[in-house]
Design a protein around this nucleic acid. Sequence first.
DNA 1: TTTTCCAATATCCTATAGGAATACCTGGAT
DNA 2: ATCCAGGTATTCCTATAGGATATTGGAAAA
Lengths: 244, 244
Amino acid sequence: MAETIFSPAATTSLERRGLRDRVYDLVLDMLMSSSIEAGTRLSIDAIARDLNVSPTPVREALVQLERTGLVTREAHKGYRVAPPIADDQLEALFDARVVLESGATALAARTPETLIPVLEDALADHTTVMERVQNSPGSGEMPVELIREYFAVDWNFHHLIFEGARNPFLLDMSEAISTRVHRMRQTVKTGVSDALEAVTEHRAVLDALTVSPDAAAQAMREHIDKVRERSRRDAARQASNTAR
Amino acid sequence: MAETIFSPAATTSLERRGLRDRVYDLVLDMLMSSSIEAGTRLSIDAIARDLNVSPTPVREALVQLERTGLVTREAHKGYRVAPPIADDQLEALFDARVVLESGATALAARTPETLIPVLEDALADHTTVMERVQNSPGSGEMPVELIREYFAVDWNFHHLIFEGARNPFLLDMSEAISTRVHRMRQTVKTGVSDALEAVTEHRAVLDALTVSPDAAAQAMREHIDKVRERSRRDAARQASNTAR
DNA sequence: TTTTCCAATATCCTATAGGAATACCTGGAT
DNA sequence: ATCCAGGTATTCCTATAGGATATTGGAAAA
């Protein structure tokens, strides 16, 4: 335990109000943004010291994080960063995504007049960022900020569909999914190479919304299955690289 | 705040090991079993005193409960028993059930050879308890223990399908659903009058499993939609009764 | 009689301290 | 050289205390 995990600026930002939720957000950002090694110990006292708070709100935040699956807990042994998505778990994650997102798409398609405009805006943003990704230097450095921005606009399309379903239960479940998807993207280096295909498939979903709920659900199912195929391919390529 | 919520026997059972999970189980049982009035304050200190523990594990258990939706929290105002499922939320709950359970059924149907035997056993238990419910005195007292037993075997069928899907993400989500369903059954007095229909529809799902995953998913979807219809009817009848 | 304001109480939120269990490291024996 | 044992240190878990905030009750005024 050498240096602190959090930047000094973060500590000053939380001042002295609403500690528990703010600690949760900070730890969540820390887990999402920087790629933390799996299995890293998340010491309650250390986090509390770094954030200048008492261990109690940190403990509450970690309990909340535990239910998201980002951290694991062993009794009397403390919290650790959850292990990366295993291969079989990755298939299960995509299965769950297909079930949830195609279902949410069918529900959201019941009110297309309010859904389509916001999705058009989201897809326009997605397209803009995609073009910037395409125009970035083909090989070599890709700004991490651009990658983060791309992931945000990409997922925003899916998130808006969950919101469009107007179902609090499915919305809660979408959060559980989004954290896993985000974490998967840290381990499996994909999601930027298929930007053009993603935009195309999102467009297909949006067009299918004007046809029927079933068509929209089917389009979403096909989109996620294609993402699954690309992830399989990238995971295999990545495995062969590390094995070299 | 007059008398204690918990029975004296409960306090002695937790002794002095693994407090947080045990407190969680106790509070969960308390919320599930006895029908607590919605909006009842869940005082951290009071629970801690009743259970002879410090407020810290109680606080952690309540954070965990909060994410299940059984309790609500307002900052600087404490925890309360979550309000009963509102009418629109009830429709949303059934929508979510249709999405999740039909999807889980399709996934579980991929391995029918391991799934069908356990479901046959579960359905046999369900049938047995159903007959006991039918033979109980038609009007008047229905033993609360029998009702609880019926709910258990009924939900067990659904739960086994979630387990059969072998998908940890969907399994987690099923817990979020089950708590809501159980709580709904406390407010809307249904689920015992349609025992025969429930068994019949479960049998239809089981038979469809031998046909194809899509057929099984469709059967589950129809089952939940029929439960939804019966709940609507019972809710309307109940509303007319209270309005009288 | 009703409304409003104020004070007292209870509760939550945060901080600090002590006991217990686990992990790590060092020294010795095989 | 390797394995085991013991001690030390870190960390988690629980308990208690103090400050801040919301709720409740009563009293006074309209």
